[in-house]
Simulated assay, not measured.
Amino acid sequence: MNMQIEPFEPNMTSFVQPCDVGIIHCFKALYCCNYCSCTLDLDEAGEQNIYKVDLLKGMMMASSAWAGVSKDTIKHCWDHTQIQ
């Protein structure tokens, strides 16, 4: 096998992996907002374990968070890489 590994220069992650910079950050922020909203609703309903989320609810929150990531956010992250 003729393989050569070349490490990235320091601080290059944002240029070669734009998802790490803005897209994933935006998704996680929206998911956390959904999660906090869910826990507050459970607390107001008098539930004991407000932090427990079943798989379906977690997937629905993730789907909602992904729907909230705008096309402009994705475009901006890719434009930032200057990949043509």
Rank of each mutant, 00 (worst) to 15 (best):
M1S: 15
M1D: 14
N2F: 10
N2D: 13
N2P: 06
Q4L: 14
Q4A: 13
Q4P: 00
I5N: 11
I5M: 13
I5L: 13
I5K: 14
I5P: 05
E6N: 11
P7K: 09
P7Q: 11
P7M: 07
P7H: 09
F8S: 10
P10R: 04
P10Y: 02
P10D: 08
N11S: 09
N11D: 10
M12N: 06
T13E: 13
S14E: 12
S14I: 06
F15C: 11
F15V: 13
F15E: 04
Q17I: 03
Q17D: 02
P18E: 02
C19M: 15
C19Q: 13
C19G: 11
C19K: 10
D20P: 03
D20S: 12
G22I: 05
I23P: 00
I23M: 09
I23W: 03
I24F: 08
I24N: 06
I24A: 06
I24H: 06
H25C: 13
H25I: 13
K28I: 07
L30R: 04
L30H: 04
L30K: 09
Y31F: 15
Y31N: 03
Y31G: 01
C32F: 14
C32A: 15
C33V: 15
C33F: 15
C33N: 15
C33G: 08
N34M: 05
Y35K: 13
C36S: 13
S37R: 15
C38Q: 07
T39Y: 05
D41S: 14
D41M: 10
L42G: 00
L42V: 03
D43A: 12
D43V: 08
D43N: 10
E44R: 15
E44T: 11
A45F: 02
A45H: 02
E47A: 08
E47P: 00
E47T: 08
Q48R: 02
N49W: 06
N49M: 08
I50C: 02
Y51K: 08
Y51P: 00
K52Q: 06
K52R: 10
D54F: 00
L55Y: 08
L55F: 12
L56V: 10
L56C: 10
K57E: 09
K57S: 06
K57V: 09
M59R: 13
M60D: 05
M61H: 02
M61G: 03
M61F: 05
S63E: 09
S63F: 04
S64G: 12
A65E: 05
W66P: 01
G68E: 00
G68H: 04
V69L: 03
V69P: 00
K71G: 10
D72E: 14
D72W: 11
T73S: 04
T73W: 03
I74D: 01
I74T: 03
I74C: 03
K75A: 12
K75Q: 11
C77D: 01
C77P: 00
C77Y: 01
C77R: 00
W78P: 01
D79S: 09
D79I: 08
H80W: 14
T81A: 01
Q82T: 05
Q82S: 07
Q82K: 11
Q82Y: 05
Q82H: 06
Q84P: 06
Q84G: 05
Q84E: 07
